[in-house]
Design a binder for these strands. Structure first.
Length: 586
RNA sequence: AGGGGAUUGGUGUAACGGUAGCACGAGUGACUCUGACUCACUUAGUCUAGGUUCGAAUCCUAGAUCCCCUGCCA
């Protein structure tokens, strides 16, 4: 068991002290959770883009915590800015999260929410704050607010700060009623114009935006800002631990200020549930560091540029670090979850070796992916002592790691394909595969027969067109009755039964670990060879594969049937290669 | 400049005043009907300088380096 991370330590301390109270029969995630300490997390995406592997960290963290501590996990769309948000993103985010296995409506699900569902309550809370003298309507333009922001040593200013409460109330109502154009005024919290933390210099709570909202339509023309809205959303959903990334650390005083301003004066950060003394549920904001995978870009701007410049085929291009891309590439959600769990959660900003994530993919697929034989770069082999037309159907083990996976029949005939790189006329040192005599040794064709090379055919240009071999019928199944051993085992496909297929071999999108670090322009580091397309020969059993199926092509890697496949024209994506110590040694 | 954070092998992490450990990577070997998987061994670390202490990654002082903050974005 890995040791608890710092967030888990906080939760365990809270559970021990009873800070958040216990689940009641009315709201427990399950009957046996009643009376147990509350742990309630959420993932609050803004629906303005596609989810990527970095978001997956937060999703796994938050939903994993709910599961681990028998609590609840909410999916909540933080849809407070209609000018950037669209229904399309709501749908894709839901699909991605579901696929990742974060159960907002499963056993530890707390439900699906929208910040926009709280707009009316937020408005009421804002009026409360104005009445308490803690917020005011400011008629400075955005530009002027910015100019008057001050410096670390000079406080900000606003001429409207001491406006009478009644006047702010009236103007705020007019804002809501649409009597003023965008930017004419805003509602600001009255906090501290001289604070060294600029977030506290009377931050804007509401701005005027005459825009259509994907959820509330045209009901509103004022929209709450993140800092004002987020704590309320957490509070209304009785979130216990509000987990966000490091850049919100200096927003925490503001998060706490707003909740305190609404509740009892004695509230402190993470003070817990509402009770007689606490009018407002005060969630605890906790910040953790994002993880940046090497050879990868995650910023929305940069991903968008790759999509619009068409250097990738779209947001779900299998080379993209988006959840949709990874899914299409064949990454199993279990592997993504395992990878982030192994990597851990801290406040240290770090680079994540992309190889770790790939390893997690191999690790999972090794256990579950059925094996097949497919030749990526075919070289013809002719078995001279096997008569034309004769077909041997051989039993092949589907998954040596999983006896329950059973076996299948694979045809063996006079003409076969093997991998080009599995043959050398003159074998290199420690090359255990097929080679010309006298140095060439006997090799095994997997689950089939031992074969020996007896010659090669070449075209006039000297290119090898076929390798001539003989087989030993006594080695049927792949073992010699006399006990002799071979050093190499090759995968193969019967040429007459082979299924041609397009196979897309992906490599990293960038040539360097930290794209853009050297020249500011990340496209300087773009890897022009990140996609290679080959026509491979597959064993016939693969004909029944369905889109999304994940299999191992023996000795080649893990592959996933792409949605571009059409009947008779399959397209396979290489998810990840197998480790290859032979290639590495070369 | 001011404010908020961070710093342990190549990478990611653990330690909560008491033996610096784990995982990944890398290297070597064993095994093998996938040069995969698995197994064994090896490799390498507390940002710096002082101080407190029997004892410091941990506490104190000073410094260094890196990240974030002056949107009516989230």
């Amino acid at each position: 068991m890995r040791p608890p991370n710092f967030i888990e330590q906080i939760i365990e301390a809270d559970n021990a002290s009873g800070k958040w109270g216990a689940w009641t029969a009315a709201d427990a995630p399950s009957p046996d959770a009643v009376g147990k300490p509350r742990v309630h997390t959420r993932f609050p995406p803004e629906p303005n883009g596609y989810l990527h592997i970095g978001h997956a960290k937060s999703i796994c963290l938050n939903s994993g915590l709910a599961k681990k501590y028998g609590g609840k996990f909410n999916l909540r769309f933080d849809d407070t800015n209609p000018s950037k948000e669209e229904q399309e993103y709501v749908d894709s985010i839901k699909a991605d999260i579901k696929w990742l296995g974060a159960d907002w409506d499963g056993p530890n699900g707390g439900g699906l929410f929208f910040a926009s569902d709280y707009f009316e309550q937020m408005y009421g809370f804002a009026v409360d704050l104005i009445r308490k003298g803690k917020a005011y309507v400011c008629q400075l333009s955005a530009d002027e607010v910015s100019k008057r922001r001050g410096t670390p040593s000079q406080p900000a200013t606003s001429p409207h700060r001491d406006r009478p409460i009644e006047e702010s109330l009236k103007l705020f109502l007019e804002m809501r009623e649409g009597k003023h154009p965008n930017g004419a005024m805003s509602l600001r919290a009255k906090i501290d114009l001289a604070s060294p933390n600029f977030n506290l210099r009377d931050p804007v709570m509401y701005r005027i935006l005459h825009e259509h909202h994907h959820n509330t339509g045209d009901k509103w023309c004022i929209y709450p800002m993140y800092d004002w809205a987020h704590g309320i959303e957490d509070s209304l959903e009785q979130i216990t631990h509000s987990i966000c990334t490091l850049e919100f650390e200096d927003h925490r005083p503001l998060y706490d200020w707003f909740i305190d301003a609404l509740g009892a004066p004695a509230l402190r950060a993470g003070s817990g549930p509402a009770d007689a003394n606490n009018k407002v549920w005060h969630s605890q904001q906790i910040e953790f560091a994002k993880g940046r995978p090497t050879y990868t870009l995650l910023s929305k701007r940069n991903l968008l540029k790759m999509v619009s410049d068409k250097v990738v085929s779209g947001w779900d291009d299998p080379r993209m670090p988006t959840v949709a891309g990874l899914r299409r590439r064949g990454y199993p959600p279990e592997a993504i979850r395992a990878a982030w769990d192994e990597i851990g959660v801290t406040k240290v900003e770090s680079w994540i070796d992309i190889g770790r994530i790939e390893n997690a993919v191999r690790d999972h697929l090794n256990k579950v992916a059925p094996r097949y034989m497919a030749v990526l770069r075919p070289l013809k082999v002719i078995i001279e002592n096997l008569p034309e037309g004769q077909v041997e159907w051989l039993d092949c083990v589907n998954n040596p790691e999983d006896p329950a996976a059973g076996s299948r029949k694979v045809p063996f005939s006079r003409e076969l394909f093997i991998e080009r790189e599995d043959f050398m006329e003159v074998p290199a040192k420690k090359f255990f595969r097929l080679a010309l005599p006298p140095t060439g040794q006997e090799v095994r064709l997997r689950w089939a027969f031992f074969i020996k090379c007896v010659g090669v055919d070449k075209d006039p240009a000297g290119n090898i067109t076929a390798v001539r071999c003989t087989y030993d019928p006594a080695t049927r199944g792949g073992d010699a009755p006399d006990g002799r051993k071979v050093k190499g085992t090759l995968h193969w496909v019967s040429a007459t039964h082979a299924l041609p297929a397009e196979v897309r071999l992906f490599d990293r999108l960038f040539k360097v670990e930290q794209p853009g670090a050297a020249t500011e322009n990340f496209m300087d580091d773009f890897n022009p060879h990140s996609l290679e397309v080959v026509t491979a020969m597959l064993e016939p059993a693969l004909a029944s594969a369905r889109v999304g199926d994940r299999v191992q092509f023996e000795r080649n890697g893990y592959f996933c049937l792409d949605r571009d496949s059409t009947p008779g024209k399959p397209v396979w994506n290489r998810t990840v290669t197998l480790k290859d110590s032979w290639a590495k040694a070369q």
